[in-house]
Design a protein around this nucleic acid. Structure first.
Lengths: 333, 333
DNA sequence: GCTATAAATGTAAGCGCTTACATTTGGTGT
DNA sequence: ACACCAAATGTAAGCGCTTACATTTATAGC
């Protein structure tokens, strides 16, 4: 691979001049610019961005840490981020944290050591203290789906309590009284918040929350399957199930049908996230919309404005969940 | 951020020694090693991997180019790759090509200029010639889901003709004779191959392929929706629809139901890819399994063995599609 | 034609590391 | 006590760029 040095020789100019035409800002006469451009083309020259980063201390790329690369939730998020960043000529380095504190930390450190100009983090396991300490460092970052009061201005979040509330309220308004809940892992804040919203709705309708009708899943389909079996064995009289995400809801559907339960007639189910396939499960799943692609875009815009000085409208940090009604919940009043 | 220089001063040794303990291979006495380690911890030292790359010409990271970051197909692929690479201490830089020649090329060049030690490419738009030329360069790469005879040993592919054949044969064996087909964009080889498999099965059953019962979609749900409408208007007598991927199949299902067609009784549908949500659509979709996560892993192993000398069993480059029977196809004999 | 000033270009010192080669140290065998 | 050799450590030259600063060249005003 040709280097800047060879280009300069071919063009008969100095290194600095070549560098100047590359970063086409400085004063370079048209004639030399042309000479250099020609030489670059002739050699098929591509700047080595590693060397550029090292010298300029700017890599034109942002680091993105997500929990998983697969799954219907992260795809749209990554996609939204990559698109808006790429449109401005910035690149994205993606890594996965697997909801594990150590791996998340490793990932963050990798991204920093890779000279990322900024980080977009969807972290779950790492502690608030760690992030606060990180914020004192020189690499700026935004947080997706995580609220830390000290870092509030860089937290882009959904009102999960409200979402949880909305889901259960809808079930309640449909006349259900015997309601079970499959939560996410309760060490995760969002899981906790959704559950709190659930309890809040229950309280408002003077229905007592019962520990026995709660199953703690892990946001993955299988735990929805297991969860429903356990819940149903414990109390076959339930008429509605609220799940802390769509994947568990679909798992629960499978289990319910295996128990000979007719959906939605005998059991109403509601999910959370409005992941793209919810329209296609049977019955089409009612759920809570989580505008994760939008939120990803906003995160990318934060980076653009805070790090690359691209002017951008002020950024929305709190997003509102919305009830999406399809056919998995039935009115039994 | 502390540099190697500060560490060496604190530990009272030379730069080279610090570097040696970092790459813990050379001969370093235990005592100095300890001194250095201590100094590193005290300073919270993290090596700057950009500088490492530049100096060593090895970045310990592989570049991955996919068409889209979202969608049910790429997630498992990226995930499989990231996992196996990360287990060996290698990192992954992901970028998206959006099935567009220019963007794919840009992405490849970015990855190369980022000093990736190897590339894993899922490219669709870029030409064979470009890739052959690329293979002469110094960055090794594997191709996923693309067959180029000249580069056969580094192409990890599925037998798409066979997959297409299997799908249609199953439909045919179920007694259908009036069959429509929604293909992917026909400039994509895999779309073409699947269609060829379809025609082959038809020919074998002495059924004539009819251009009017072919709709060229784009592998995206909406085109399945549009496709079915068009096909049905053209010929309301069809009893079966084979789709070149699952997303278009689900789109077609929506459309079919909007036309008042009862599924699967009045219309059998089969998809392709066996994307994770196919089990949950209604009716559960019969499809062709595409072991993309496995193939991603194999690609990662290729990189591990060819670039990092990790010994690994010889690599499987041709994968077999398999028929997955669920409930969306009905026997009408 | 000569100086003052701006524009264009060049020079060279890093950025933070790795690594070939040189030097020092310490342990053997005699 | 000496030479000898391997192990441990140090020295310094890059890797391919950017950029402050120095120098040269062109332009204008008088």
């Amino acid at each position: 691979m040709a280097t800047i040095y060879e280009v300069s020789k071919l063009a008969g100019v100095s290194l600095a001049t070549v560098s100047r035409v590359m970063n086409n800002n400085a004063n370079v006469s048209d004639t030399t610019r042309k000479k250099v451009t020609l030489a670059m083309e002739e050699l098929g020259y591509r700047p080595n961005s590693i060397a550029q980063s090292l010298a300029s201390n700017c890599s034109n790329s942002a680091g993105l840490l997500v929990s998983e690369l697969k799954g219907p939730f992260y795809g749209p998020m990554m996609s939204g981020i990559e698109n808006t960043l790429r449109n401005q000529g910035k690149h994205v380095i993606i890594t996965a944290g697997h909801s594990d504190a150590e791996r998340e930390q490793q990932g963050i450190e990798f991204l920093i050591s890779r000279n990322c100009d900024a980080l977009i983090l969807h972290v779950e396991a790492v502690s608030d203290e760690y992030l606060i300490k990180l914020s004192k460092g020189k690499t700026p970052f935004v947080l997706l789906n995580r609220h830390i009061p000290e870092l509030a201005d860089r937290c882009i979040i959904l009102d999960n309590v409200k979402g949880g509330y909305l889901a259960t309220k809808y079930i309640l308004d449909s006349g259900h009284k015997n309601i079970a809940y499959i939560s996410g892992p309760l060490w995760k804040k969002d899981a906790q918040e959704r559950l709190n919203g659930h309890k809040q709705a229950l309280a408002e309708h003077a229905i007592e929350f019962n520990e026995n009708s709660l199953y703690e899943g892990d946001f993955i389909e299988d735990s929805g399957y297991e969860g429903f079996s356990a819940l149903y064995k414990n109390n076959p009289a339930i008429t509605a199930l609220v799940c802390a995400n769509d994947e568990m809801a679909t798992g629960a559907m499978v289990s319910a049908r295996e128990h000979g339960i007719e959906l939605p007639a005998q059991l109403s189910i509601i999910g959370y996230d409005n992941v793209f396939f919810t329209r296609h499960v049977y019955p089409p799943l009612s759920t809570i919309n989580y505008p994760i692609d939008e939120m990803g875009k906003v995160a990318a815009q934060w980076v653009l404005s805070h790090v690359y000085q691209k002017s951008v409208q002020p950024i929305q940090t709190l997003f509102e969940p919305e009830l999406v009604i399809r056919q998995s919940v039935v009115n039994i009043t």
